[in-house]
Design a protein around this nucleic acid. Structure first.
Lengths: 340, 340
DNA sequence: TTGTAAGCGTTATCAC
DNA sequence: GTGATAACGCTTACAA
């Protein structure tokens, strides 16, 4: 409870106690003074004794550095954004920065949140675009003002940075792993048809299927939304009729995979003995389903550190970075010995 | 792109254009001036024309109102916090406030985040305590400084506000609904044993079981963590042996319920024909499981509006509020006609 | 390297 | 109700 007197809380008091000027206090505490001599120690001791911490408002007003990072996500209930949040908050906190969060489920809301955060003079902005949102215009508008990093989605502005997944590497891992398991045919449950991204992933899928001499069929592969319901419906259609059926299914999202697994169970088909399933995004429940779900895990830690690094570089040098994900192999793609 | 000239962005320019003093501009734009006369209109027009928005740092420095709300949660991947986030962000934004987010998975981390946010002079602090965290000390420390609202968990400080669920009402709804379905026996999968909260809920469970003339057995009811794995294990133990088995299970969290449903499926028992299952927290996947899961849904909207109202009241009048949840009835507790 | 002093853009105070 | 002006707490030229 020492030093909790409100009037003690300004840099002037620290300076008085340490017997130096407020300028020196400022320089020592902000690290703009190299030496670690007696003066520096005295200042730090005084600051601690008075329980002093800078007034960020005053600091921001003078220096235009606010020590805040803005993050815009479509929703916290979406696992990619949630996992990114959990990873980014502690990392930012280490630099004694703070996270200003904006949530926008569509293009318009995301644009509004960007405007608000830019008005707050955040030091940098990280944006996870909502599905189908085209943020080109807003991104371009603020690109010169502050460093902006888009995470995931399709890059649309060459004036802002981008950190994304190396989807080619991901698809190669997935199909390669399935081929290793000895399957010969595979289906793909893609994302929304309208998205250019989905189409590109779809092309990668076909490339890898050919590369590994696997088989697929046009009517196996579908575009659609990323939901449990969609996975369920697709599996019902794909596996309930006595047609030729794929031995494995690659899903554009874990939610789709969950739906499929429920449907397969209902149809009496076993995962992985009858069908192998691969998900995407490695949501927290992937490790708790029965069987546990093999899934592509975005490298959240690297995504965060790269995004923050690009922000630290400033708005002048935008860069585009692709990071390879990891394939988390679980029970849904590993057939128990000889039981196939 | 009108008025995007950086030098136009201060209150001085607005005052010059509107031909009034900066004091008047400040008063008009901050709503501290009652009349809506020609002057007010002129000021607003000038502000719009120059694309002016207040510099929050300067405003905060002078007035000690920062227009920021701090929110501390244990993790974004936990559905209660995620749903709260999605509800709180747009509500705050309406008042042109911003959300400063802190994530702390345990007592210590939450305490640190509280200190950071208090140092930022947030206008109010909303805290969702981590499981098992005792925040009494930190809450008390800052209670006089700024309004603090604890959401959920056990109230431990009478100097801070609290918004929680009316657990009695919840339990009454759940057991009442199960009784209406014609069952006679019920088990309860509680939360952690050490938590006083769990013990209290457990007592409420017993009270309601008696009130509705249902039956339960000590060895049916267990304390444990809120995880899918725990639910699975408990169901396996409870239903795999040919003992007397409950006709319904109430779970302290949806995750436990998911685990139970997977286990029951594996054991060849049908939900809801053989066993009724009720979850808690109405996580987004509750509506997508097979069968869909009946769950207690916290009134997120009310929680948020009450929390913000208490913050607006200031730190001087802490209040404790209990809100009744809703029971979202889905397939896991509704037996199809005559199939039981 | 250190101290002095000038602001940063706003709101609060005071006199009118 | 309005305008002039001080003050908020800090960072950064600039001078020493």
């Amino acid at each position: 409870m020492a030093g909790r007197n409100e009037s003690n809380r300004s840099i002037t008091n620290v300076a008085a106690l340490a017997n130096v000027s407020i300028a020196t206090v400022s320089r020592v505490l902000s690290g703009k003074r190299t030496k670690d001599d007696d003066i520096a120690r005295r200042v730090r001791a005084a600051a601690e004794q008075l329980d002093y911490s800078v007034n960020y408002a005053a600091s921001a007003l003078r220096s235009t550095i606010t020590n805040t990072i803005g993050l815009i996500i479509p929703s916290a209930t979406e696992t990619f954004s949630a996992q990114l949040l959990d990873e980014i908050e502690p990392t930012i906190d280490v630099d004694s920065q703070q996270l200003l969060l904006g949530i926008g489920a569509d293009q318009e809301a995301q644009g509004e949140r960007m405007a608000s955060l830019v008005a707050r003079h955040v030091d940098g902005l990280i944006v996870v675009p909502a599905a189908g949102a085209d943020l080109t215009e807003v991104l371009e508008r603020y690109a010169g003002t502050l460093p902006i990093v888009q995470v995931g989605g399709r890059q649309r502005s060459f004036h802002t940075s981008m950190v994304g997944l190396d989807e080619n590497a991901a698809m190669e891992m997935v199909i390669g792993h399935l081929a290793d398991q000895g399957i010969e045919s595979v289906a793909y449950m893609a994302g929304k048809e309208i998205s250019f991204e989905s189409a590109e992933l779809f092309a990668m899928f076909h490339t890898q299927v050919r590369a590994h001499h696997l088989r697929t069929q046009p009517d196996w592969n579908r575009f659609g939304e990323r939901s449990v319901q969609r996975g369920f419906d697709c599996a019902m259609r794909l596996f309930s009729e006595p047609l030729v059926q794929p031995e494995a299914v690659v899903c554009a999202d874990d939610t789709i995979a969950f739906g499929m697994m429920v449907a397969l169970h209902a149809l009496g088909l076993r995962v992985p003995q009858d069908v192998l399933i691969v998900g995407y995004n490695d949501s927290p429940i992937a490790s708790t389903t029965m069987p546990t779900l093999t899934s592509v895990r975005p490298p959240f830690q690297q995504i965060v550190s790269e995004a923050l690094r690009l922000i630290a570089l400033g708005p002048e040098r935008p860069a585009h970075i692709s990071l390879p994900p990891r394939l988390i192999i679980r029970d849904s793609t590993v057939v128990p010995n000889g039981s196939r």
